[in-house]
């Protein structure tokens, strides 16, 4: 089945919990908790603490990120917040401000 998609025009204020993948084009303020991947797409705005198996940031994300797998900040994306993940990638042209904890 299709995973959850939050469209570009949608604004969510509150708590989101998902067993499946989450793709965000719109705006979320609050808290995101997913057992699968979370993709913050280009043009989206997320002001939330994100906890997921895998997090990919292509848009604007403000909040702490916790992932069992990897966290990727793509080109043109911006992440402000602390990252706790096993693997962490910042692509060329991405902006990041925060603390990184990779369980070293």
């Amino acid at each position: 089945m299709a995973s959850t998609v939050i469209g570009a025009g949608i604004v969510i204020e509150g708590e989101v919990e998902s067993d499946e993948a989450l793709v965000i084009h719109g705006t979320i303020r609050g808290k995101i908790d997913s057992k699968e991947s979370v993709a913050v797409e280009q043009g989206s705005t997320v002001e939330a603490d994100v906890s997921a198996r895998e997090v990919t940031v292509g848009g604007n994300l403000t909040g702490n990120v916790t992932a069992e797998g990897r966290v990727v900040i793509a080109t043109g994306a911006r992440l402000i917040g602390d990252v706790k993940a096993a693997r962490f990638t910042i692509q060329d042209g991405a902006q990041f401000k925060g603390h990184v904890d990779m369980d070293v």
């Binding site: 089945m1 995973s3 959850t4 204020e13 509150g14 989101v16 998902s18 499946e20 989450l22 057992k35």
Partner: peptide, 11 residues
């Protein structure tokens, strides 16, 4: 999706 729980406001 099915496995999603959302608490809050959607606009």
């Amino acid at each position: 999706a099915e496995g999603l729980t959302l608490t809050g406001r959607v606009a």
